[in-house]
Design a protein around this nucleic acid. Structure first.
Lengths: 233, 233
DNA sequence: TCACTTTGGAGAGCACTGCTCTCGATTTTG
DNA sequence: CAAAATCGAGAGCAGTGCTCTCCAAAGTGA
């Protein structure tokens, strides 16, 4: 391959790195992670397979970069969708955030599976990835927290729910995401988050086949139930 | 390989088929599905790789058999655990069923991932597999149904929950699993099922890292919340 | 400016994979 | 007892991730 036009070395390197990720993402979107082959990526880029290793030391390293990008994109999409709603309408924000998750997931099923399906065996996410992965639960937590702040009232009257969560939750780590939410309500917050992604995963991974006829309507209903469950106004 | 001692051809074939699955399961349990190689299976069995194709036409066919077996085992384990509790104590049955799911999942993480992680791209479960996969939700549904039958009382007072589910749920398919549960409550039943597996998946797939310190205690709390949410006595 | 170092693509090669095909030996069947 | 079905062995093909060496181009310091 002849060298690309002009540009400093660092620039060219950044461009190539980005180009590789673009091609790899498209291949994953088309055929899933399992069938992603470095050689196919290199072929599509008109370079030889070994050249690719100048940019990513291993297949897993490329995948890690793609996982990070996908988390970031999903996080940005959800943040943007939610930010368009008036801050006080916490339920509408909740709906918008959940809908954005499902919309991104259904339009990027293979990338969603990359994030929320089976992790690579022995794979441990680097901190930077964890930060990106936290954006969506961060949005959900902020909505709940804002709801507590803006619509104060008695919450979670069921005394069973007022359990001391310190023995099993990392309260210090969760509090910053939802400063106004009382720790007793963290379990329900985590459950709402879990249920949201569980519902999307079950839809995409085929576990609802035979039970659900309209995923869209089922999902919307679930979102309302979750909002109630989490104590939204 | 010299022929195994005695036995009719059909017998030997059944034995070999079973032996292959045993070896493959062990390899998956050790290193996950991604690293399962037919050649390694055949090597461990002392046969040549091509001979394996007399029993399974393709890697996916072997995986399908293993998926079916795993669903069946999980189903049997949960059914057994739940059946030990007095029929009237529906909440204890609920706890037992949920605990059995988590116990099996945490002691068979790779097999759990095979069932509830990323599905093989383009893979469509045969009917027989779907039947096996339905056993656990069947147990959960039966518990809810028995609870309605044995502890009749006003349920789901929140009028929002009394939504007509016919536009988006396959009521006919769901009713047999929980004959006494009113269709308006099917959404919560599906959500409880989803949340149960979502919680287990999030734990095993690492999404709770940093948030949960004692998965066992968190899970137990979630199970109680789900029982309440689904309307159990 | 010019020697020196760094970069990164090309190409060959290794060990591995799923899968196919042919060839016999053995077993079952009519 | 001959014909047919079965099934393991072995060679082989196309593909994989990854390593290594080679070499031209680009950047660097005196």
């Amino acid at each position: 391959m002849t060298p690309k036009s002009t540009g400093s070395r660092a620039e060219l390197r950044a461009n190539q790195t980005a180009a590789i990720k673009v091609v790899a993402r498209r291949l994953i979107a088309d055929q899933g992670v399992a069938d992603l082959s470095l050689r196919e990526v290199s072929r599509e880029m008109g370079m030889v397979s070994s050249a690719l290793y100048r940019y990513f030391a291993t297949r897993d390293e490329l995948l890690t970069a793609l996982i990070f990008d996908a988390y970031s994109e999903l996080g940005a999409v959800v943040e943007k969708a939610e930010s368009k709603i008036a801050r006080g309408d916490t339920r509408a924000r909740w709906r918008a955030a959940c809908a954005a998750v499902r919309k991104w997931a259904t339009s990027h099923p293979h990338e969603y599976a990359l994030l929320y399906g089976t992790p690579v065996p022995g794979y441990l996410a680097p901190n930077v990835t964890i930060a990106a992965a936290t954006r969506v639960p961060g949005v959900l937590g902020r909505i709940l927290s804002d709801d507590v702040e803006l619509h104060p009232r008695r919450r979670l009257v069921d005394k069973k729910a007022a359990v001391d969560v310190r023995p099993f939750l990392q309260v210090d780590a969760l509090t910053p995401s939802m400063p106004n939410v009382a720790p007793e309500h963290f379990v329900r917050a985590l459950m709402a988050w879990t249920n949201l992604f569980g519902t999307v995963s079950f839809e995409l991974f085929g576990h609802y086949v035979g039970s659900v006829t309209s995923y869209r309507q089922f999902f919307d209903r679930v979102v309302e139930e979750l909002a109630d469950f989490a104590g939204l106004a």
